[in-house]
Design a protein around this nucleic acid. Structure first.
Lengths: 215, 215
DNA sequence: CCCTGTGAATATTTTCACAGCT
DNA sequence: AGCTGTGAAAATATTCACAGGG
C-alpha cells in the first residue's frame, strides 16, 4: 500500500497563491464555469501559467491534458490541503472598532472561521452582544477557550496591551495567533504568530507613490 | 556635481522589511535607545543580520563600523525613502464596520495617512460624521477628490460593488488603490492596486494549523 | 491540436564570510 | 575588538520549453 500521508511542505508563496486561486475559482464556479486552464487563471491574476501549474501540482495530480482542471475537484483539493474545509473556532481579543469589523467581516465566516468568544476588559463593552456573542472579560480565559473549542486567537487591542494579551493567550493554551496590533510580539517557539498589519500595505503603497512622484 | 536622484529600485521584500524595521526602531527610540546594530534588529525579528545590513544599504551609507546605526538618522532615512514623511490624503469608500475601523485605526494617522473624504451611497449613512468627516455620496467624486487633495483610495465595500467602485475611482483620477474587498480588481496599468485581504492571513494560518494537526 | 506536468535554465533572495573602518 | 558593507556562494522562486496524454 502506498503512503498517502507523505506530505511535501508547500512554500509560503505557493500557499498564498493557492488561497488566491481558490477564491478566484469559487467565484468562477458560482458563475457556472466548470473547467479552467492554467492559462486562464494566470491571465486573471497577471502571473505566469507555469507558475499556476506548478502550484497546483503540489496538491497531487488532477489536471486533464488538453482540457484543464475540473473546477469542482480543484476547489475541493485546495480547500482540503489548506485546511479550509474544517471549521476553526476563533477568539477575538479587543472589542473596539477593528474587532467589530473583524467579527462582522463576511469573508471570515464564509471561510470557516467562527468567532466563538469576544473578550474585552472595558466594562462599558462587557455584556454587549456582537453577532450573538456576549462580550466577556479575560478572566478564566483558559476555561472559556476550552469550553468553546477555540484554536485561533485574533488580537485587536492597542499595541500597548498586545504583548500582555499574547502572554495570557499562550498561558491559556492558544498556539495560533493572528495579530492586528502594529507591534512585534514575543512568544515561545510552538506558538505561531501571524502579523496582519493594516497599515503595512498602506505604507508599501506610500513607497510606491513617492517613488513615482520623484520621476 | 553628483547626481543624487539616481535611484535603485528597492525590491518589494526589502520595502516590506524596511517598514518593519522602521516601526521597531521607533519603538526602541521612544524607550531611549540611541544606537542599534544589525544583529540586534535581526534578533528581535528572528532574521539574518546580513539581511538587515543589506536592506539598510539600499538607503545609502549610514552605519558606523564597530558601533552600529544611529537610531535617529536611520529612522529618518527609512521614512524618507519610503515616503513616510509626507502626508497622504486618503478617501475611504464604504462606510461600514471595516471602513470605520480603518478611519479610526490609530496607526494610519500616525503614519501620515489622512482620511479626508468618506464616501458611501447608503442614505442611512450619508451625513453622519466620522472623525470630523461628513460621509458623502459618490456623486461628483472627481471634484471632491481634487478639492481635498486626495491621492490614495481605500476600498472597503462588499466584494460585489468593489469593481464598480474601482472604475469610478479610476475615472476620478485616482492612481493608487488599497483594496480590502476580497476580490481581484481590474484596472489600467498606471493604476496600482494593493490588496489588503484580512482573511488571507487567517487562511494562511489555517494551512499552518491543519498541517500541524496531521502530524 | 491544446493542454498539463516537470526537468532544466534563469532570476531573485538570502546567507556566508571576510576585508576594512572606527 | 566589534561592527558594517558587500562580493561570492547557496538557497529559493520563477519561467522556459517541451515531452506526453487525451
Amino acid at each position: 500500500m502506498k503512503k498517502i500521508t507523505e506530505k511535501r511542505k508547500i512554500s509560503k508563496h505557493t500557499v498564498k497563491r493557492l488561497i488566491i486561486y481558490c477564491r478566484l475559482l469559487r467565484d468562477a464556479y458560482e458563475s457556472g464555469c466548470l473547467w479552467i486552464t492554467s492559462k486562464e487563471i494566470a491571465e486573471k491574476l497577471a502571473i505566469n501559467s507555469s507558475q499556476v501549474r506548478r502550484d497546483i501540482s503540489f496538491l497531487g495530480k488532477k489536471g486533464k491534458s488538453g482540457v484543464g482542471y475540473d473546477m469542482k475537484s480543484l476547489i475541493d483539493n485546495i480547500q482540503d490541503v489548506l485546511g479550509l474545509k474544517q471549521k476553526w473556532g476563533v477568539v477575538l481579543i479587543g472589542a473596539g472598532n477593528l474587532g467589530r469589523a473583524l467579527v462582522y467581516y463576511p469573508a471570515f465566516r464564509a471561510e470557516g472561521f467562527e468567532f466563538r468568544l469576544a473578550i474585552d476588559n472595558d466594562s462599558r463593552k462587557v455584556g454587549k452582544k456582537w453577532c450573538g456573542m456576549k462580550i466577556e472579560t479575560i478572566d478564566g480565559l483558559k476555561k472559556k477557550i476550552e469550553k468553546k473549542e477555540v484554536e485561533i486567537a485574533v488580537i485587536a487591542v492597542p499595541k500597548e496591551s498586545a504583548q500582555w494579551v499574547a502572554d495570557e493567550l499562550v498561558n491559556a493554551g492558544i498556539k495560533e495567533i493572528l495579530n492586528f496590533a502594529p507591534v512585534a510580539l514575543k512568544a515561545s517557539k510552538e506558538v505561531t504568530i501571524t502579523y496582519a498589519d493594516l497599515s503595512l500595505e498602506l505604507r508599501r503603497l506610500s513607497y510606491h507613490l513617492s517613488s513615482r512622484r520623484v520621476k
